[in-house]
Each structure stands twice: as C-alpha cells, then as structure tokens.
Amino acid sequence: MSFLSSMNISASAMTAQRLRLDVASQNIANIDTTRTEAGGPYRRKMVVLEARNENSFKKVLMNAAGKSWQQSTGGVRVSQLVEDTSPLKSVYNPEHPDADENGYVQMPNVDLIKETVDSMSATRSYEANITAFNAIKMMASKALDIGK
C-alpha cells in the first residue's frame, strides 16, 4: 500500500466523520421541530458507514493476468442516511398549535445527550485521522530527505 493510498483512506474517514457531525448538528437544530415538509414532527437521522470495496473486479483480473495494478485502497464511505424509528415523545402542552384534542404534542425523537456523544465521537475520530494523515505526510517528507 502506497502512502497515497493511506492518505486516501484517512481522507475518506475524515469526510465520513464530517458528515456524522453535520447530521448530529441537524438533529440538534431540529430538536423542537413539530412540523416538517413531509408532515409530522422531525425524526432523528443517523449515518450508516461501511467499508469501501477494496478489490474491484478489474483489479482482481489485472492481478490474475500478471499485470501490475495499483494497490487496492480501503477506507470508509457513507452507505445511507436513515431515520430513527424510535417512538416520538408526547409532551403535554395544550397551548401549542400542534397539540391534539387531549393537549399532547408529538415532539421529535431527538435526545440531546445522544447527539452530543455522537458529535464528540465524530470529532475524536476526525482528529485521529488528521493525526494519521500528518504522520503519513511526515514519513513521505523524510523519505524524500533520504535522497539528498
């Protein structure tokens, strides 16, 4: 695996973690949203990550034919954004415009603590990948210094 492949892996992870942080921010921003375009209260969104396909058919075929091919790269990618299907929260507030006949309002299923933990986790993962990326850059720089 070349150092460029390592950089691509770290970059894919940073992109995925940035999206996780964006989704957590969106969930927090909509913590009190009782009306959406689709109708009903906002539902918490979650990011599903999966490993990138490391060996495409072309790479396997080229290796089997004895032709050199760039080393396969790994990494992570976002496979989908899903809505949390956990039940919505019922809050008694008869003065709210979206209250039902009993005075209850259906509130989003967003939990501030969960979103804070997700944000912290995404931030730490992002920072770890920055550290790995910088280590790869330093190794490449030192390798270039050998030729001097």
Rank of each mutant, 00 (worst) to 15 (best):
M1Y: 06
L4V: 08
I9G: 07
A11P: 04
S25L: 05
I28D: 01
A29S: 08
T33C: 11
T34N: 02
T36H: 09
T36C: 09
E37Y: 11
G39F: 12
G40A: 11
R43W: 02
R44C: 02
R44H: 03
E50C: 10
R52K: 13
E54K: 15
N55I: 09
F57W: 11
V60N: 05
V60M: 11
V60E: 03
M62T: 09
A64S: 13
A64T: 14
A65P: 09
S68K: 11
S68L: 00
S68D: 00
Q70H: 06
Q70M: 07
Q70L: 08
S72M: 10
R77Y: 03
R77N: 07
V78S: 05
V78Y: 03
E83Q: 15
L88F: 03
L88Y: 01
K89M: 10
V91G: 06
N93C: 01
P94G: 00
E95N: 14
H96S: 01
D98T: 05
E101A: 13
D111H: 13
L112G: 11
K114N: 15
T116H: 10
D118K: 07
M120A: 14
M120P: 15
A122T: 01
S125A: 12
A128T: 07
I130S: 07
F133M: 05
A135V: 07
A140C: 09
K142G: 00
L144I: 09
G147W: 00
